[in-house]
Amino acid sequence: MIIDQDENTTIITQEKASIIELVKKIDILYDRFKNNNIIVNITKLDVVKLSDVIEFLQLSNKHRKAKHSFVIVANNASFDEMPDEIIVVPSMKEANDVIEMEVMERDLGF
């Protein structure tokens, strides 16, 4: 797991860990970046299944409830299968765009 900081966004890149291990590690280290927007980059996986994304749902809900963005980047996912409760995009550019839009919405009181 690689953790990078970019202004108010933490980018977590999955290297070799399984999705379950990655979620556990993020949960353990959560206090380090709980006040930032989070991008989880899992593009190194050959295929991203719905069950993989569901593993992040509890963490995503907790983070979004605290008024911060949580976005998963997965270029090998079937986006039609992804639940509406979690944001999954195919590229880092789109992840940053989503965060930018959500920050504007929060600033406007939405």
Rank of each mutant, 00 (worst) to 15 (best):
T13Q: 10
V98N: 06
K62A: 14
V88W: 02
K65V: 12
V98I: 04
F56I: 02
N35Y: 14
K93W: 07
D46N: 11
V98S: 02
K44A: 09
T43G: 07
I99W: 01
E7K: 08
S60W: 05
E15R: 14
E7I: 07
I12C: 02
H63E: 09
T43F: 03
F70N: 00
E85I: 05
E21I: 06
S51H: 12
S69K: 04
N37Q: 07
I3V: 11
R106D: 12
N35R: 10
A17P: 00
Q14E: 09
N75Q: 14
K49T: 12
L29M: 13
T43L: 01
K65Q: 15
P83C: 13
E105R: 15
V89I: 05
I54F: 08
L59H: 08
F79N: 15
V88L: 01
Q14R: 13
E94H: 08
S18N: 10
V103C: 06
F33W: 04
H68S: 12
Y30I: 03
N75K: 12
M82P: 01
N37L: 01
D6R: 10
V98E: 12
N96P: 03
I12F: 08
I86S: 05
D52C: 06
K65W: 05
R32M: 11
Q58M: 10
F79K: 14
I2C: 01
F33R: 09
E94I: 06
D46C: 01
V88T: 10
N76Q: 15
I2W: 00
T10V: 09
D4K: 12
I26K: 00
I72C: 04
V47K: 09
I2E: 12
T9W: 03
K24H: 05
L45M: 04
H63Y: 04
D4F: 06
Q58N: 14
K34R: 13
K24Y: 01
R32T: 13
V98A: 01
V71Y: 08
D107P: 09
N35H: 11
V48I: 06
N76W: 04
E105H: 13
I2P: 03
S91K: 03
I86C: 07
K44L: 08
D107W: 13
I38M: 03
S78N: 15
I11E: 06
V40L: 02
E94R: 12
M92G: 05
N8Y: 01
S78L: 07
T9N: 11
I26P: 01
Q14S: 04
N76K: 11
P90Y: 05
M1N: 10
D97T: 05
S91W: 02
E21V: 05
D6T: 13
T10K: 09
T9V: 10
N36G: 08
E7T: 12
I72G: 06
S91Y: 05
I20K: 11
M92P: 06
E21W: 02
I2G: 04
N8A: 09
D52A: 08
V53S: 11
M92A: 03
M1D: 10
N75F: 03
D84Q: 15
S91R: 07
D97P: 03
N36Y: 04
L108V: 00
I99K: 09
E85G: 07
L50E: 14
A17T: 05
I26D: 00
P90N: 10
E94Q: 14
V73F: 03
G109H: 13
F33A: 10
I39C: 07
V47F: 10
M104R: 15
I28F: 04
I28H: 10
R64D: 15
V88N: 02
E100C: 00
I11H: 05
E81N: 15
